[in-house]
Simulated scan of single mutants.
Amino acid sequence: MSEYAHPEALVDTSWVADHLNDSNVRLIEADEDVLLYEVGHIPGAVKLDWHVDVQNPLSRDFVDQEGLEKLFSKWGITNDTTIVLYGDRNNWYAAYSYWLFTQYGHKNLKLINGGRTKWEAEGRPYTKEVPHYEATTYHAQPADESIRAFRDQVLAGLNDSNVRLIDVRSPQEYSGELLHMVNYPQEGAQRAGHIPGAKNIPWAVTANADGTFKSAEELSEIYKNKDITPDKNIVSYCRIGERSAHTWFVLTRLLGFENVRNYDGSWTEWGSLVRSPIER
């Protein structure tokens, strides 16, 4: 993994197996399918339920600084703990969590390259035992929203020649052929299509069949062919921000792009806004 701009952002399954009893490492499983953890998880891992644990119940936003501090403290995480994230769907929600935790300033963050898919394929152990850790007092920094895009910023960027929008959804969603993803009605919008000028680079093209990331050379070629280069200001989006966080991770951690933001409002917001421009 030394070929990537920030190889320290990834660990392989062998590294995880060697650190299962490391008290300074906390494994966090974040899945799209929230029932998978109960079916079996990597020993020592805690469960992050994205629908509950990091959502503000009264607004469409994330937990605030205090909320994250309480969550990490409950899991026995300190500011020096190495957090290792993984999940299903080639780490959709693991990458989303990485992006969120980065906003609050946690330094030692890593993804398991290949996530659950690779761990399972190698026949590595799972457990149903839920770990319990002694509570700590975690201190988060105020949210750094420079890696997060909001709708007004996206709208203003439509007339900026240095801004590049990446729609990481499927070609059918991008074209407007598909309004609602199958089995995801909660991610719906009033209209189908894409944000004007957005390039369609589905998140899945960055992954190998075993769930690991493609090589730096392959990844660079994918984006360069769509005029996505490090000198541009880049905004990625999908429907709710989890797939586009995966792309944010690829661009910033694997390729070293510095000006990338994730528009987590994504299509569920944009596709329902009054007078927001769309293309099909």
Rank of each mutant, 00 (worst) to 15 (best):
D12Y: 00
D12Q: 03
T13R: 06
S14Q: 14
S14L: 15
S14D: 14
D22I: 05
D22T: 08
R26M: 00
D31W: 00
E32R: 14
E32G: 15
E32P: 06
L35F: 12
Y37V: 02
L48T: 03
W50M: 01
V52D: 13
Q55K: 15
P57Q: 04
L58W: 12
L58H: 13
V63R: 15
V63W: 15
D64R: 13
E66W: 10
K74E: 03
T78I: 04
T81V: 01
I83R: 06
V84C: 04
R89I: 06
R89L: 11
N91W: 00
W92L: 09
Y93A: 08
Y96G: 11
L100M: 09
L100N: 05
H106D: 00
K107Q: 06
N108K: 15
N108L: 12
K110S: 07
I112Q: 02
I112H: 01
N113H: 03
A121V: 15
A121S: 14
E122V: 11
G123I: 06
Y126A: 06
T127P: 13
T127R: 15
V130S: 13
H132R: 14
Y133I: 00
Y138C: 01
Q141M: 12
A143D: 02
F150G: 05
L155T: 12
L155P: 11
V163P: 11
L165V: 04
D167V: 03
V168N: 00
E173V: 05
Y174T: 09
V182F: 10
N183M: 10
Y184V: 14
Y184P: 11
P185N: 06
G188C: 06
Q190W: 08
R191Y: 12
A192P: 09
P196K: 04
A198N: 03
N200M: 00
P202L: 07
P202K: 07
T206Q: 09
T212R: 02
T212A: 04
S220Y: 07
K224M: 12
N225S: 10
P230Q: 04
D231R: 10
K232V: 10
I234C: 04
Y237F: 12
R243L: 09
R243E: 02
F257H: 08
E258R: 15
N259F: 05
G265F: 01
G265A: 03
W267K: 06
G271Y: 01
V274R: 13
P277W: 07
I278V: 10
I278M: 12
E279P: 14
R280G: 13
